[in-house]
């Protein structure tokens, strides 16, 4: 079972929900605690709540073109074939723009004089470890200035593979663009965390559309209930999106999360609530 926690709008409580779910599942099944993947590689922060001891590390790189100028005729076919305009041929000179390159390899294949070979371009790092509750934890960290998160997320998902029967919890980045799609791809269930505000609603609509495109069943968690208005509630009702949990706007929760505590540590009743949430999600996945 793989559950991705996403939101659309940033700062609605994805990481609060994802880490709380992971802790509750670890307490429920100490024999096989979940695997947790923090896919918010631009600003990973789940480790602040789950507190893993990191032990393994791996660079993330994609293969980008390098030009052998002695073989290059300046024909420009590499630039023509590049969908991302990561190669320019100007005055018979080939320029490579590593930050635009998606590493597809088309330029290398099309070069008629074999003047292109591929070299790794490091764009970030993956780290993994075990938390005090024996949760297998892994996250990716994108290098500063690097614009492309998707390769880091793809390689994180491949590197940190679950054991048979292990629940996987994926903490997605905010937004609804490619990095979120990559984080949701392969999930059995998408948990959308929102807040009852116009911004929360606006981005929830987008996130629900992404889920629909991907064909993944969805449930909604309303965080900071008590602020804003009923528009999120009304939207969920008309769209048939189940609201699986409501977390109140609460000073103790704000204080606790600011100190790196997940909900079960702030209010122990959440351990059971998240275990029940998981049971409900499992039921929905089986009966979809």
């Amino acid at each position: 079972m793989r559950i991705t926690v996403a939101s659309g709008k940033g700062g609605t409580g994805k990481t609060t929900v994802a880490t709380s779910l992971a802790i509750s599942l670890a307490l429920n099944n100490p024999a096989l605690p979940p695997l947790f993947l923090d896919c918010d590689v631009e600003a990973p922060n789940a480790h602040l709540f789950l507190k893993p001891a990191f032990k393994d590390k791996k660079d993330v790189s994609i293969l980008i073109p390098s030009i052998d100028e002695s073989k290059c005729t300046g024909c420009g076919r590499c630039a023509d074939v590049c969908e991302y305009h990561a190669i320019a041929v100007l005055n018979n000179k080939v320029l490579v723009f590593p930050q635009l390159c998606h590493g597809c390899g088309s330029c290398t294949l099309i070069c008629p004089t074999k003047a292109i070979w591929e070299v790794p371009n490091v764009m970030g790092v993956l780290e993994s470890g075990i938390t005090p509750l024996d949760i297998n934890f892994a996250h990716g960290i994108m290098n500063i200035g690097e614009p492309m998160a998707v390769p880091v997320i793809q390689q994180l998902k491949k590197w940190a593979a679950p054991q048979p029967g292990q629940v996987v919890i994926v903490d997605a980045p905010p937004g609804t663009s490619c990095p979120v799609v990559e984080s949701a791809r392969g999930a059995d269930f998408l948990l959308l965390v929102t807040e009852p505000t116009p911004f929360g609603l606006h981005d929830l609509k987008l996130a629900a559309q992404v889920a629909k495109e991907l064909g993944i069943p969805v449930g909604v968690i309303i965080n900071r209930e008590g602020i804003g208005n009923a528009s999120v509630e009304n939207f969920c009702e008309t769209q048939g999106l189940p609201i699986l949990m409501r977390i109140p706007y609460d000073l103790a929760i704000a204080k606790g999360t600011a100190q790196g505590q997940a909900l079960p540590e702030i209010y122990p009743k959440y351990t059971l609530l998240f275990q029940q949430l998981f049971a409900e999600i499992s039921r929905m996945v089986v009966h979809q």
Binding site: H85, A86, A88, L90, F97
Partner: peptide, 14 residues
Amino acid sequence: ASGGAGTQAAQFIA
């Protein structure tokens, strides 16, 4: 263009 508009434009005007 989804990306690389600047490099594409440079090649076009070249």
